[in-house]
Design a protein around this nucleic acid. Structure first.
Length: 1011
RNA sequence: GCCCUGGUGGCGGAAUUGGUAGACGCACUGGACUCAAAAUCCAGCGGUAGCAAUACUGUAUCGGUUCGAUUCCGAUCUGGGGCACCA
């Protein structure tokens, strides 16, 4: 052990080393077996259609430059354990791994450093793979996919063409080839099912045939599953580029702090809204957690209500006939008589037309303000109520009331019709808005409305509501809709919160679109022309007028029949179908052969984080449905079961730097955590700064440690003179790896940040104690722990088991390296069931050290074994890996106590251990003389007879409080139990001579006596 | 703001269907072995009172249902994740 050792927050020396004997030399064992497994291709997976299959999939990683930290492998270890378990159960298991290797970070990095994303991505993947391999995963790397590989994205582009060439048939509720739609238009046109023929929307066959090619294509574009249209983006003029929401902070660009505004640009979209209902229905067929389904349902946001059109008051003379109506969507048509104002989204088309001359200036000011606001900001800040009156009025169709029309940022253009009818007594936002702008509030729900806040109830009896008076709101909804439809002023409407998915990015590092624009018509490439390779660029800056970097490649863009599409596909394109490619990764003819996709079928178990709850999962579910509709695969849900792993959070450490204002001597000073609140600390600080600040007193208030960001607090000094008027304590992240628990290794710290070599430290009890906070694990917070170092120090088996032992996979938890010792001790103890540690060198003492015998096991030993089999098998089945690890510990402790070294007990136990700690299991298996790998063994069978008991020590409670324990036969009857219990001295004592009212006896659980 | 989710000893967690709260591990304390250390083994370990047996109390807070609540219901406080161009 040396002070130099800074590889982890555990500062002990390597747990093994030196000495002779057969000790658990995990380094040798793991290296040896990883090598052998690789040579024997034991993880190679064949499409052997005769065997039962099981498909385990991890959400593949984005290969970031930071490499793996201990949070990444959590899900991978879980899926690896389950895969190996299923293999032992006789399944042909597909458990592949690959990389989601297109994406923004590589491009950002390229912008900063000039390194091509292809190069950095390749490098990062190499690092990831070597890190993954050290943990001993059973991946068949021959099936690896990388989304940025042309051999892969050829098929992403191909599927895009299928989407482009398909439409959603509303009658059959499925995707069909667009050629069928064209045929229909040519022969029947597009005629209304019922009601009015609306020119522009409907047309006859003759009309269709008379349209120009361009007109026809424009009509078709409105039906394609992948289509092009105009949509809003975050536009940053200064950077000349479109930004992700991520890159926009408080309305300005993260890079450079330039202003950002909304701008409409031509974009590609996927018509996921067409699949809204099927995406909802599909949730009933899959095994996802309820919360996950709930999140997806909320995202889709299906609601039923009505679209109502309000006449606008005639006085706005600039209104044309067409725009004299204001269409709103509401889920609560029952509240129509409570409407006190209307609100349009600021982007609403009508705004410009209806605004009166007097209001024009104000409206324009407001529009300018809204442009800089993100959707999130617009909805979030309730305290800040903003809006602007347009000067226009709408007319309530039933009572003729004049209703003022406002615009406000809390109404979003993308949802519903982009306009609402505001009912302040029933909706809190509307209420706050009305109060803020002094709009009178109509109460239609009597006592249910307090006047202090809105009440969104549906259980009130309506008042002040004309023909709805006296009706329960729930029932009034239907009545109102009928009346609205009768009056011809609106209709029943199902609405979805979900919008069509934006599918183009003004970026370089993504799949190029196989599209050529010719005279405004999007021409798809032929399948034979794929892949359309992503051309090499030297510069990663944006193209002209906000286009992606590809627009700078003039030669590439201009082709004989037009111009290439210069945007690229988003990150989720490649990940929407990757699960299929693993089944048939080298197929050059098809994205995946039907035979392979029929055999491997749905993913039986999908493991990944909740952060993908809506995005990725919905997109891949949609793609799967489209592929199914087009007859390309045989199922329309990709993932049968989904398990969400929790996030492993980082446990950050902080040091507190004191900066004295106007301090010219620049002495660096740090203060230990618990002295921050020390009243005398200002004296100390003063002491340390002596020489520059004679006679200056600092009066410190208690520092507010909870303050955000860096600045903990500013201390005003009452008697400040000359040099000093305040000192500032700033909080700095410090590398967790140079902190032992909470104690800072000061020397290591100085080495880590050389600028503080001469810093002084105010200690407590001779130590510098760091502050602790749980945050997301990230390089910039210096709270990452590298799995490589842990594998090197304790071995992959220990690391795997420890990650599992931390807690339930689904739960988030902070990482703490300290506990890993315990798991390592367990594996050493397990090893000692097979080997006795001797002082002789292994070359001589092997026979002597190996202590496994062929003796017959005792009933007690068999009970330990079979208890373990039952517990570990069921825990593995239900993904309760932490309790399974604890079951291994219990079994090992008990067998060690029994001094059991019997093959017939240990051999099955080894098989149980294989999924969790494959290396040690394989080694000991070989030591037992087995010639075939333990990976191909079969899982031991649990036998009830070995664990059966005929009595149980029942807890006996009096009035619900456990007072004693009585051993009673398991097959005892109620009467027998009552007799036994009432004879017991402890029970008699607590009864105090009273008669029990009731005796509750739950077989195999407990007994409760009610007095 | 909206949606989802969590809160149990000093710490990570266990309690699978409403039935003995704290399994297992870490840390800590005491002991054995050792010249010493490491490793290993044994014992203790929620709080309060007590030498102890034991009693009371205890699963974020408050209230409810029940013979019985960490578990179910209602309200409150609080940590984490997502919110459509990060992946």
């Amino acid at each position: 052990m040396s002070k130099e050792d800074k590889t982890g927050s555990v500062t002990n020396s390597p747990p093994t080393g030196g000495g002779g004997g057969m000790e658990y030399d995990f380094r040798r064992i793991e290296k040896n077996w990883q090598q052998k497994w690789k040579e024997s291709k034991i993880y190679k997976v064949e499409n052997d259609f005769s065997r039962p299959k099981y498909y385990v999939l991890d959400m593949f990683p984005y290969p970031s430059g930071a490499g793996l930290h201990v949070g990444h492998p959590l899900g991978y270890i879980a899926s690896d354990i389950y895969s190996r378990y299923k293999r032992l159960k006789g399944f042909n298991v597909l458990h592949p791994m690959g990389f989601d290797s297109f994406g923004l970070p590589a491009e950002q990095y390229a912008l900063e450093t000039g390194q091509h994303p292809a190069e950095t991505t390749k490098k990062n993947i190499t690092t990831f793979k070597s890190q993954l391999d050290k943990i001993g995963f059973c991946y068949d790397w021959e099936r690896e996919v990388q989304t940025s590989d042309p051999k892969y994205y050829k098929w992403t582009q191909w599927i895009f063409l299928q989407l482009f060439n398909s439409y959603f048939c509303n009658t059959e509720k499925k995707a069909l080839p667009i050629s069928l739609l064209i045929k229909k238009y040519e022969t029947k046109g597009a005629m209304p099912k019922a009601g009015l023929f609306i020119p522009g929307k409907h047309f006859t066959a003759e009309q269709w045939n008379s349209y120009s090619k361009k007109q026809q294509k424009e009509i078709l574009m409105k039906r394609r599953l992948a289509f092009s249209a105009y949509g809003e983006v975050n536009w940053c003029e200064a950077l000349g580029t479109v930004l992700a929401n991520d890159e926009v902070v408080n309305g300005v660009s993260e890079r450079g702090g330039h202003p950002v505004e909304k701008r409409k640009m031509r974009q590609w979209y996927l018509r996921i809204t067409a699949y809204a209902d099927r995406l909802l229905e599909g949730l009933d067929k899959v095994d996802f957690s309820d919360s996950m389904k709930e999140m997806q349902r909320n995202w889709i946001g299906k609601s039923e209500g009505a679209e109502i059109s309000f006449e606008l008051a005639a006085r706005s003379s600039q209104l044309t006939a067409k725009s004299s109506k204001l269409l709103v969507y509401t889920t609560r048509p029952d509240t129509i008589f409570g409407v006190d104002f209307m609100v349009l989204a600021p982007e609403h088309d009508l705004v410009a037309q209806i605004t009166t001359a007097e209001q024009k200036e104000e409206i324009e000011k407001y529009l300018h303000y809204v442009k800089s606001r993100s959707d999130r900001e617009r909805q979030a800040e309730v305290k800040q109520i903003t809006g602007c009156f347009t000067g226009a009025y709408a007319i309530n169709p039933f009572d003729g009331r004049k209703i003022p029309v406002w615009i406000a940022e809390y109404v979003l253009a993308g949802y519903g019709t982009g306009a609402i009818m505001a009912v302040p007594c029933g909706d809190q936002r509307d209420y706050l808005f009305a109060r803020h702008f002094n709009i009178p509030i109509t109460n239609i729900i009597g006592d249910h409305y307090s006047g202090d806040e809105a009440n969104p109830t549906k259980d009130a009896i309506l008042q002040n509501s004309n023909f709805l008076n006296g009706l329960l709101m729930k029932d009034a909804i239907e009545v109102a809709i009928k009346k609205i439809e009768e009056a011809g002023i609106g209709k029943r409407k199902v609405n979805y919160k979900m919008r069509d998915a934006g599918f183009s990015r003004q970026r370089y590092w993504g799949e190029p679109f196989p599209i050529i624009w010719s005279d405004g018509i999007a021409l798809p490439l032929d399948a034979e022309e794929l892949p359309l390779d992503l051309p090499h660029v030297d510069k990663y800056g944006p193209g002209p007028s906000g286009e992606g970097p590809l627009a700078n490649l003039v030669d590439w863009v201009n082709v004989s029949n037009g111009k290439r599409e210069t945007s690229t596909m988003p990150g989720y394109a490649g990940s929407s179908w990757y699960f299929l490619r693993y089944m048939d990764p080298h197929n050059e003819k098809e994205f995946c052969s039907r035979q392979a996709s029929d055999y491997w079928n749905q993913v039986d178990l999908y493991i990944g984080g909740t952060e993908h709850a809506v995005g990725h999962l919905l997109y891949s579910r949609m793609w799967t449905k489209v592929l199914y509709d087009l007859g390309l695969i045989g199922y329309d849900e990709p993932y049968k079961k989904l398990v969400n792993q929790g996030m492993i959070q980082g446990s950050s450490r902080f040091v507190y730097r004191v900066t004295v204002q106007n301090n010219t001597n620049k002495q660096q000073l740090f203060i230990s955590f618990n002295r921050l609140e020390d009243k005398q600390v200002s004296d100390l600080i003063f002491e340390k700064q002596k020489g520059v600040m004679e006679d200056v007193t600092l009066e410190s208030k208690n520092p507010d440690v909870s303050d955000s960001n860096n600045h903990v607090s500013i201390h005003e000094s009452a008697n400040a003179r000359d040099y000093v008027d305040a000192y500032v304590v700033s909080k700095m992240h410090v590398d967790v790896n140079i902190v032992d628990g909470v104690e800072l290794d000061i020397e290591a710290f100085k080495k880590w940040k050389p600028e503080y070599t001469n810093a002084e430290f105010i200690l407590e009890d001779g130590k510098y104690i760091c502050g602790v906070e749980v945050e997301k694990m990230s390089k910039s917070k210096y709270n990452t722990v590298n799995p490589d170092e842990l594998c090197a120090k304790y071995g992959a088996d220990t690391f795997r088991m420890y990650e599992m032992f931390l807690g339930p996979v689904e739960m988030s938890k902070p990482w703490d390296t300290k506990g890993i010792e315990g798991v390592h001790r367990f594996l050493k103890k397990f090893w000692r069931l097979f080997f006795k540690e001797t002082k002789t060198p292994p070359s001589e003492g092997l026979g002597e050290a190996f202590i496994v015998t062929d003796e017959q096991p005792t009933p007690e030993e068999l009970k330990v074994l079979h208890t373990a089999i039952k517990k570990i098998e069921s825990d593995t089945e239900r993904f309760s890996f932490n309790t399974a690890v604890s079951a291994f510990m219990i079994a090992t402790n008990e067998l060690a106590d029994l001094k059991c070294h019997k093959r017939s007990v240990l051999e099955p136990l080894l098989i149980l251990l294989t999924p969790y700690a494959p290396h040690i299991a394989e080694e000991l298996w070989a030591q037992l003389g087995n010639k075939v790998s333990i990976l191909n063994a079969s899982y031991p069978n649990f036998e009830e007879k070995y664990v059966k008991e005929n009595s149980k020590a029942y807890p006996v409670a009096i009035n619900g409080k456990t007072r004693t324990e009585i051993s009673i036969a398991l097959d005892a009857t109620q009467q027998q139990v009552e007799e036994i219990v009432l004879k017991d001295t402890v029970v008699l004592k607590w009864l105090e001579g009273k008669q029990p009212k009731k005796i509750i006896y739950v077989k195999n659980k407990m007994i409760n006596i009610v007095v």
